[in-house]
């Protein structure tokens, strides 16, 4: 079973590093914030300098202020917000389907040892298949309709959830399970009050991983297939020579990524506030 350890790794590592993160989150150090801002400003400043002085050709990389101006202009365009909404809705729908599917299938397979044994090899085989391999197929089936991107998002994200749920269900304390049986808990009751709380941290980890993978695949399918959204706009801007717009949209997509990371971490803290890994070290 040695292969199971690395996958459970994030959860285990999180459990270990959580108290440190907790203190960091609750006691924001102003020196750190200052240094962080300074670091970002240095990057922006250096970029501005090398482009203004012509060390890097501005037709490849415009100065940051130009990109920022373009970004401001974009924020006033209804087309931008339409693409923004399309990207977010594709991401959210795909992620919701993947999570629901992963949790349901994971709990069912995980609770039945025979199913677990039977499906292990198939899951191990299907999981590493790169979802981009399916791009040609979805193009033929759905073209540039949102179904294409949603299919790819679901395929890529569902494994993250499923595998984590499987480890979570396997992690149930045998003593707790036996105790529940001694008290003649019904199947449903066991699932709800023994299996689910144990599996929840894993589910949340899976959800966090799935959320960022889903965003990657949503943008990819927009960029590659041409499903409407910010990814397609980046491709169009690049090929039509709108360099500043290309960078402005890349920054927007990056910020969406940051927002997704922060939001999932927040959800994690909220949902697992009762869990030992999240509690403040006394």
């Amino acid at each position: 079973m040695s292969t199971t350890i690395p996958v459970a790794g994030p959860a285990a590592a999180r459990a270990r590093s959580a108290p440190a993160r907790r203190t960091r989150a609750s006691r924001v150090s102003w020196t750190d914030v200052g240094l962080g801002t300074l670091g970002a400003l240095v990057v922006v400043g250096v970029e501005e300098l090398i482009t203004r002085t012509g060390i890097v050709d501005a037709s490849y990389l415009p100065p940051f202020t130009t990109i920022l101006g373009e970004l401001g202009h974009q924020l006033g365009q209804p087309e931008f917000w339409q693409s923004f909404g399309q990207t977010l809705s594709g991401w959210a729908i795909g992620l919701a389907i993947a999570t629901a599917l992963g949790v349901t299938v994971g709990v069912i397979i995980g609770s039945v040892p025979l199913l677990r044994e039977l499906t292990a090899s198939t899951i191990e085989f299907l999981r590493p298949i790169p979802s981009v391999a399916l791009i040609p197929l979805v193009v033929l089936l759905w073209g540039t309709r949102p179904a294409s991107s949603i299919f790819l998002v679901v395929y890529a994200a569902v494994w993250q959830v499923l595998v984590q749920v499987l480890y979570g269900v396997a992690d149930v304390d045998p003593v707790a399970r036996d105790t529940a049986r001694s008290y003649r808990f019904s199947r449903w009751r066991v699932a709800r009050s023994v299996v689910w709380p144990t599996a929840l941290p894993y589910v949340v980890t899976g959800f966090r991983l799935a959320a960022s993978v889903a965003l990657i695949l949503e943008i990819t399918s927009e960029l590659i297939i041409g499903v409407p959204g910010l990814g397609r706009d980046i491709g169009v801007a690049q090929s039509s020579g709108a360099v500043a717009k290309t960078y402005a949209l890349v920054i927007v997509v990056g910020l969406i990524g940051v927002a997704v990371n922060l939001a999932t971490r927040y959800v994690e803290r909220r949902v697992l506030s009762w869990h030992p890994s999240m509690r403040r070290a006394v």
Binding site: L215, L223, V250, G254, I256
Partner: peptide
């Protein structure tokens, strides 16, 4: 880290 890697291709 949060920038989805595929957008690197056009950039």
């Amino acid at each position: 880290r949060a920038v989805p890697p595929p957008v690197l291709v056009p950039v």
